[in-house]
Design a protein around this nucleic acid. Sequence first.
DNA 1: GCAAAGTTAGTTATCGTTTACTAACGCTGC
DNA 2: GCAGCGTTAGTAAACGATAACTAACTTTGC
Lengths: 197, 197
Amino acid sequence: MQPFTERQIEIMEAATQRIDAHGIQTLTIKNLAADLGLSEPALYRHFENKNAILLGLLNYFSAEMVARLADVRSLSYGSSAEELRAVFDSQLRAFTAKPSVVSVIFAENIFHYDKRLSAKVADIMDVMQGHVTDNIKTGQAAGEYSKLLSPATLTTIVVGSMRLAVLKWKVSGNRANLVKDGRTVLDGVLKMLSTNN
Amino acid sequence: MQPFTERQIEIMEAATQRIDAHGIQTLTIKNLAADLGLSEPALYRHFENKNAILLGLLNYFSAEMVARLADVRSLSYGSSAEELRAVFDSQLRAFTAKPSVVSVIFAENIFHYDKRLSAKVADIMDVMQGHVTDNIKTGQAAGEYSKLLSPATLTTIVVGSMRLAVLKWKVSGNRANLVKDGRTVLDGVLKMLSTNN
DNA sequence: GCAAAGTTAGTTATCGTTTACTAACGCTGC
DNA sequence: GCAGCGTTAGTAAACGATAACTAACTTTGC
């Protein structure tokens, strides 16, 4: 989307960390300014209002994710399963590097009071599901995945399983190894889905 | 837990519906009182404070769910798969009957600002996972389910898939048929998990 | 020397909650 | 059979705290 200034990125990351650590209810301009060691009006030098910070941060993380996944998928893989592993590996590594992002990306409900914000979150979810559905269709066409279930149902199973793995990691206080645990779940799904087990 | 008065239940259901429709950010005493056609202080005749309303509603729905699922599982079934279908059938029917409850039961993040509230939501999630893990262990022991994957991984897959099915229904504005769509996903998982396909 | 980025000191609106009061009801005991 | 009394559930008005935001001034770096 837009190119953000350094200060804007600082503000958006501080907002994300606050939402992650203490919930959106505590995301006030006062708290956010204090987190950054700034006065409240200083924030308004960089964003028009509080909502613009939230919309900005969703656009910021969404753009990063779209670009990164496009990158991952532009490579060539020996099999559909291999590509799917690469996609989730990239995603789970990104979450591990910036755990607080998860609290904002997986947050259909906390932005429910604003159409634009909740639409953006739904949009991010659709991007991931799109990648998975593509992968499943290709894998089924190649005879690598079982055709017992429809791509739609399989997408729900794959994405749902991975989302819950992430949620469990979050509930554990990010103490678990998300890349490893997520890989175990994905391998499990692939094992059941594969035609040559 | 406690037996709630009729008025308390009215208040808790109004709060749940508001969270569902407009997000927790708009759950103020003023809005809630207006929804009920009452004055603000009237609410304090029935709950000590705003937090008690939220804690009360989580306890209220959690108790209903625990009792209902215990009931479902007290019956006897021809197979583990049949029992699992009955558990989720009951759960999805309950969600369909009271769609707003989902927004509050699936809300690890919106209660993040309060330990007691988020612990209660985590607790509710554990109850469901416990039922599923039990079922999977029994099904594996009976040779009905594949032993290729651990009960923990299979639980993540089953519960994760069903949660995403519910979330999709919610995002669709509850327009879809949750009982039917959820059943499709569960049947899909069971098909892959079953030893005699 | 000036634009960008910060400050102090306010604004108005709304938050959760309390105070003080009342109408309606059910139980006593004579 | 009803006066006296306590309880329940409501109200209007106001509380202090805090929300998002702004006007006006100062500092800073090229």
